[in-house]
């Protein structure tokens, strides 16, 4: 019999993200979002059967048979009950303030106040060192009062930086009440990486260590982070995925290992 007590890091990240989705929440996914998609599919099969999922921000309540090779192609929205027209419908709902309160964000850089950059590396926007894909929906999701959940499969000082080179997705800006002053609600709630789970301190809005994954030390997390983390006096260990969660992810949800590929798990 397969041993579902052993787990891989993508499985732990999926289970951690899945726990953030409550039954009845409405969520959607964008491009290159394998771990969030698997987390949604896991939540649907476990604690949140009434979770509403808009696959690719367009296919309502789909039934894909597994995590496909793309999170923005037709196999993902297979057997949907409705296709939302991307602009006409999707953004009307997303902008309404009444729907889709949670969004998962991945980006090349994330900073200590939860601002994200997927636009350019370098200080000259028009002559960047690296031209990244672009903001896509991030600048909207960051400004429209959503709860942002970040995932990052490569926790290192290059991706977790003191200050992003460019704000593609507004988080808490310069910290404190800067976000409130602009009249923005919602904001970054949680960061799930391959080493730890982090959140944001209520007053300063600085990133704070919440739990370290089994086998990882606080020092290792700090060393892999490009700025000083807030570290509470006691840091818990991230719960391991249960054997049932591991079985579902490995055998049912992601048998092709798309999340393993995303997380660089061999």
């Amino acid at each position: 019999m397969a041993d579902y007590g052993e787990y891989t890091i993508d499985e732990l990240m999926c289970a951690t993200l899945a726990a953030q989705f409550k039954d009845g929440d409405e969520v959607c996914n964008g491009m290159a979002s394998f771990i969030p998609v698997a987390a949604i599919m896991l939540a649907l099969r476990t604690h949140a059967p009434e979770l509403v999922w808009l696959a690719g921000a367009a296919g309502v309540d789909p039934r894909p048979d597994r995590v496909p090779a793309s999170t923005l192609e037709s196999p993902l929205w297979r057997d949907s009950v409705m296709y939302l027209e991307q602009y006409g419908d999707f953004w009307n709902y997303a902008q309404s303030g009444r729907h889709l309160h949670t969004f998962c964000v991945g980006a090349a850089q994330l900073d200590q106040y939860g601002n994200a950059n997927n636009s350019v590396i370098g200080d000259d926007y028009h002559r960047p060192k690296v031209r990244l894909p672009g903001t896509a929906g991030l600048a909207d999701m960051g400004a429209l009062g959503k709860n942002l959940l970040y995932w990052n499969t490569n926790h290192n000082p290059r991706s977790l930086v003191e200050k992003v080179d460019f704000v593609s997705c507004p988080g808490y800006l310069g910290g404190g009440d800067e976000r409130d002053k602009l009249g923005l609600t919602g904001g970054p709630k949680l960061v799930v990486t391959n080493l730890a789970v982090l959140d944001f301190a209520p007053d300063s809005k600085r990133m704070r260590l919440r739990s370290v994954h089994p086998g990882v030390t606080v020092e290792q997390v700090q060393e892999a982070t490009g700025f000083e983390l807030l570290v509470p006096s006691s840091v818990e260990e991230t719960p391991k995925p249960t054997a049932e969660q591991v079985r579902l992810l490995r055998d049912v949800i992601d048998p092709d290992g798309m999340c393993k590929r995303e997380a660089g798990v061999k």
């Binding site: 636009s119 909207d140 960051g142 593609s168 507004p170 800006l173």
Partner: peptide
């Protein structure tokens, strides 16, 4: 108008 992008660096450039 949109309410998107507020707080981002996209507006200034």
């Amino acid at each position: 108008p949109t309410r998107g992008m507020l707080g981002s660096d996209l507006i200034d450039i």
